[in-house]
Nucleic acid binder design. Structure first.
Lengths: 133, 133
DNA sequence: TATAATTCCTATGTTTTTGATAGGAAATAC
DNA sequence: GTATTTCCTATCAAAAACATAGGAATTATA
């Protein structure tokens, strides 16, 4: 499967930060979004490293978004949280060394598929993951 | 990843049958397509059960296509050989019991993604996987 | 009718990825 | 200085992906 629990949790956690002014403690955020706390920690960590959220340490610390919610595309977030967004190993960097690559007639199809998926996921933002809007 | 080795092997094996009149023994087919023989056996078996290829047992037996190559869409073949073609568990039947489903704002996005992928893979046929054509 | 070549079937094993959990160090508000 | 929080490293468990093994059943053909 192309989008795993991890990536979906990441999106939920970020969606859970939309509209918050304060730094939201992870204990609370993870609780609200029903993401296992310790797993959420690991995930949010990569979001911080990617610059998608900002952390405040210590008491009354927590996390908050760094941009307007409409400025996060799903593609962008998932590219960071998923191991790979590629539809096949062939296009995922993993088989970059595939000896067939040069002449493989199928490779262009997988590349086109990746592009299709990427285009799709680039059209949606965090805003599209909120209850009503 | 949405399309695994198994599915790609299946497509290769079928592509390897294009243009053959006789029944091609798997030993030869798998060799030509560089698919591990024993794994190929398991895969071809599901292709037979799906009616995509026909087997002949015993000496001078083997496999051949049951239709014109242009009449197999990639979507169709992969739907049978992949565990699931769904982009997420949410749409893959696995989380059919997801308690969030009823109100989940993200679910429609995954459904649309699945449809996009399916449409894409429905446009290509075995013929598109051959060397020149 | 024996033999070799083949598919078919069931079971098992290995590796990788995914999904987590544990424990404690470091920072900070109060 | 204490409670609350993020940060960091290590470890573990379950599932999926990727096969392999061995032998029974079938069939052409010498």
């Amino acid at each position: 499967m192309i989008i795993s629990t991890r990536g979906r949790y990441a999106l939920r956690l970020m969606a859970g930060l939309v509209g918050e002014e304060r730094s939201v403690p992870l204990r609370e955020l993870a609780g609200k979004e029903e993401v296992p706390f310790k797993y959420a920690e690991a995930i949010v960590n990569t979001l911080v490293k990617a610059g998608f959220v900002e952390s405040a340490r210590g008491k009354s610390g927590g996390y908050r978004l760094t941009r307007d919610p409409r400025d996060y595309s799903l593609a962008e977030v998932l590219r960071v949280t998923e191991n790979s967004l590629a539809a096949t190993d062939c296009t995922g960097g993993k088989d970059a060394d595939c000896p067939r690559a040069a002449t493989c007639p199928t490779l262009p199809v997988w590349r086109a598929l990746d592009e299709t998926v990427n285009d799709f996921l680039s059209k949606y933002t965090l805003l599209d993951l909120l209850p009503h809007s």
